[in-house]
Design a protein around this nucleic acid. Sequence first.
DNA 1: TCTGGGGTCCTAGGACCC
DNA 2: TCTGGGGTCCTAGGACCC
Length: 408
Amino acid sequence: MGILTGVASPGNPGVARQAETLRINAMARWILHVDMDAFYAAVEQHDHPELRGKPVIVAGLGPRGVVATASYEARAFGVHSAMPTAQARRLCPHGVFLPPRFARYEEVAEQVRTILRRYSPLVEPLSLDEAFVDLTGTEHLHGPPERVAHEIHRRIPAETGLSCAVGLGPNKLIAKLASDAAKPGGLRIVRPDEVLDFLSPLPVEDLWGVGPKTAARLHEKGIHTVAELRSISLPLLQSWFGPKGGEQLWRLSRGLDDDPVVPARPAKSISHETTYPQDLFDPEEIKAELRRLSLLVVDRLQAEGLLAQTVQIKVRFADFTTVTRQTHLPEPTDHPLLLTAEVVGLWTRVPLPAGLGIRLLGVGVAELCPAEFRALPLFTDDRLAQAIREIRQKHGPHALNFLGPGQG
DNA sequence: TCTGGGGTCCTAGGACCC
DNA sequence: TCTGGGGTCCTAGGACCC
């Protein structure tokens, strides 16, 4: 049966299946995923050879810091990312604890992305240490994707001195799970006809989007592996997790994912937040911090030539309860005084539980648009905004201390 | 020595309108 | 006096990712 003969219909399942196969082949993709091994720690060990072979832990070093990356030597002590630094110190007292150097990691990440772009223009960074590459249709330039995967896997360590895991599959979901399976330092190729067997034994929490809460709910129902998840009907999954959530799980369990590889997604929000070493109680100090965070956000807005029309604050109390307040502005702006005034206004809408200190404050903006879309100033004095911008550019973000405590 | 910082996406509920 | 349903917009919260 070389060609499609007949009409796909429920009464003719063989033909329907054949049509489905043809449709899938017509859309077949090859997606590669690169995941740098223990990236931040590996960069530190690369830059400081005396640290090689030692447990290196890149982490926030303050009293409330957490681990960003632990080297494999440190993982042997039970240290892993997102663990409180204090706990990591107890588990691994002789570990080398270092604060992150993001500017340096960004350099190396760009070096890796440059290697990847030799093989396809469609390179989508997922974070500093991960990226997707769409190799579909690059065969005539670079050869079969399987060979390209081997080449990339060899070339990244050769050119950066850092090891990586590489996964290759028919979509992002499978490529990422393949690189997970190859960690550390390996290469895993999953062909389309191998997808279901590859997925079946994996625990449901390995799936993209299944976190602790969803996993716990699935476990309660006796579902632990992807094969078990796949045996649940779509309507039942939807009754448990809602129409979208249910369909998402149904598709994930079958390895279905048509999310495209997109090289540059414009940011949808910008935010800054700080967890304080000691809880804040003083209202003036809190307001001063909100203004400081606001100006950090304004700096980024202006650096990227953007305006924002939504402002949000986030407050986390000592008991970890978190509240947010947001407001929609009449027009988009990057005006420092306007935005700080909105932020302080939002703060007055936060109910304060008696006796609870504040451990985190955050300020964010959303509904971003390019600054060329700026509305003509009617009532705001734009010369003032311009003057503030120039002073802060010339003398740094702390130059205008009229925004300090007790003076706002 | 309990729990970072920067994001994305989804849902639920209330207001408001027809 | 009692009683609709649907659609849209906005806000707050939460799950999840690295």
